[in-house]
C-alpha cells in the first residue's frame, strides 16, 4: 500500500510558503500532480491564479507581472516545462528575470517514490534534473511533508541569482482535509 502523504507536501503548506514569500500571483498551465494546490488557490483571495493555454505564455505572463512589481510563481508539469524552454531561455536566462517554478513530475511510477527520481524508469521524470543542471537552474525536490521550506529557499535563490529556480514536485500534492482524515 502506498502512503501518499509520506511523499507529498500539502496544499496548505505550499500556500503558507507562498505567503511567507509574498507571492501574489501564480501563472500556470495546470499540472495533474498539483490539482490540490490549484484547487486551494482558487479559494485563496490573496493569490491570483492565471491560467494560460501554453507554458510559454505562463513564463511570459509571469515575466510581465514581475516587471510590473508582482511576485509570481509558475506552476507547470515536467512535459510542459520541456515545451516552454525557449521562453525560459529568453526571459529567465538571457533576460535574467527571477522566476520561481514548481514542476510536477508527471508520470513517475509509484515504485520510485522515496527513491532517486533520476532512477525512474520514465524518461519524462529522469531527464528533468539533468536538464535543469544543463541550464544552470538550481532545484530542490519536494519529496515529503518536511520539504515545504525548500519553497522559501528556492524563492530566495531566484531573487539572488536573478534567474529561474525550480521546485520538483515528486508526488501528488496533498488535499489537506482528506489527508488529515486518513
Amino acid at each position: 500500500m502506498t502512503h501518499h502523504s509520506h511523499y507529498a507536501v500539502t496544499a496548505s503548506d505550499v500556500i503558507a510558503a507562498f505567503q511567507r514569500c509574498g507571492i501574489d500571483h501564480v501563472t500556470t498551465v495546470p499540472d495533474m500532480l498539483q490539482i490540490a494546490l490549484h484547487d486551494a488557490l482558487e479559494r485563496e483571495p490573496g493569490i491570483r491564479q492565471i491560467n494560460c493555454t501554453t507554458e510559454d505564455q505562463a513564463i511570459e505572463v509571469a515575466s510581465g507581472l514581475w516587471a510590473g512589481g508582482a511576485r509570481v510563481a509558475v506552476l507547470v508539469q515536467n512535459q510542459g516545462f520541456y515545451a516552454g524552454i525557449n521562453s525560459l531561455r529568453a526571459l529567465g536566462l538571457d533576460s535574467k528575470i527571477p522566476l520561481l517554478f514548481m514542476i510536477g513530475q508527471f508520470g513517475r511510477e509509484w515504485s520510485n517514490l522515496g527513491q532517486d527520481p533520476r532512477q525512474s524508469s520514465r524518461r519524462m521524470v529522469r531527464m528533468l534534473e539533468p536538464l535543469l543542471e544543463l541550464l544552470d537552474i538550481p532545484y530542490w525536490r519536494l519529496e515529503g511533508p518536511g520539504d515545504a521550506s525548500h519553497i522559501d529557499t528556492a524563492w530566495r535563490a531566484s531573487r539572488e541569482r536573478s534567474g529561474p529556480a525550480a521546485l520538483l514536485v515528486g508526488h501528488f500534492i496533498g488535499f489537506d482535509a482528506v489527508e488529515s482524515a486518513s
Binding site: T27, R48, V61, G64, L65, A67, G68, N86
Partner: peptide
C-alpha cells in the same frame, strides 16, 4: 522571442 509579446504585455497589464 517571437510570439511572446502579447503574454508579456498581459502580465504587465495585470500587474499595473
Amino acid at each position: 522571442l517571437m510570439g511572446g509579446a502579447a503574454s508579456l504585455g498581459m502580465g504587465l497589464a495585470l500587474a499595473r
